[in-house]
Amino acid sequence: MELARTIRSMPFTAMLGIVVIAVYAVVAIFAPLLAPYGEAEIVGAQFEPWGGAFLVGTDNLGRDMLSRLIWGARNTVGVALMTTVLAFLIGSIAGLLAAARRGWVDMILSRIVDILMAVPSLIFTLLALSALGPGVMNLIVVVAIMDSTRVFRLVRATAMNVMVMDYVEAAKLRGEGTWWIIRREVLPNITAPLIAEFGLRFCFAFLTISALSFLGLGLPPPLADWGGMVRDNASLISFGDTTPLLPAACIAVLTVAVNFVVDWLLHRASGLKD
């Protein structure tokens, strides 16, 4: 009944966060069933008002806003999730390698990360995207590399602490290889902080990709994507129409939910009880 106790001790905000994340996941997975119209299907006139056949109206090209919001859950969150996973792969492999090998491997990797972190990541991202050109793959890779710097720092620091433990020394003396030690001794001991970090990195990737889409440099056009939808319909704001705030709110609510859960995880991990 460990689980039941954990759930009961959860603060309200964390509970709310988990429920919201679950709802987003369901919407993203079942988007084709839930959306009344297709993603890029033009079904009405431009900027139709709320109500009637279109619950929250149509967008600048006459596509159903609600359907695009639902499809957006799949595209925007999906791309952000892929980016975060890639960032974790790069960051933790490099971090573990640096912690296990030390010496010049650690030197070189750490200096590269220092350089990447010496400049606001959006500036590097814009520079890289203008050099490489637009495209989903470029977007994912560039944002993932910028995002992986933080993962690297965390993994390296936590793994360093584990590497000096006696049981690692014992494994080394037994003649186990680097990867065996990383897999069996280091990884199980650093997963707790990594889970919280995954949430934070996801928020960063999600907000960065949304911002880039909003700037017109993110997911390519016919795809429904929340940041791009804000951009497409932004002119409505000056006419007192709140429709463009909807996709922005979709982004905000998910990030708030993830942050609430992460905040609780970090609070629990730090051993502070109130």
């Binding site: 928020c203 907000l207 911002a211 909003f214 940041g227 922005a248 905000a252 942050n259």
Partner: peptide, 8 residues
């Protein structure tokens, strides 16, 4: 506030 995209 941290969780909100700047444009929101």
């Amino acid at each position: 506030a941290i969780s909100f995209p700047e444009f929101f």
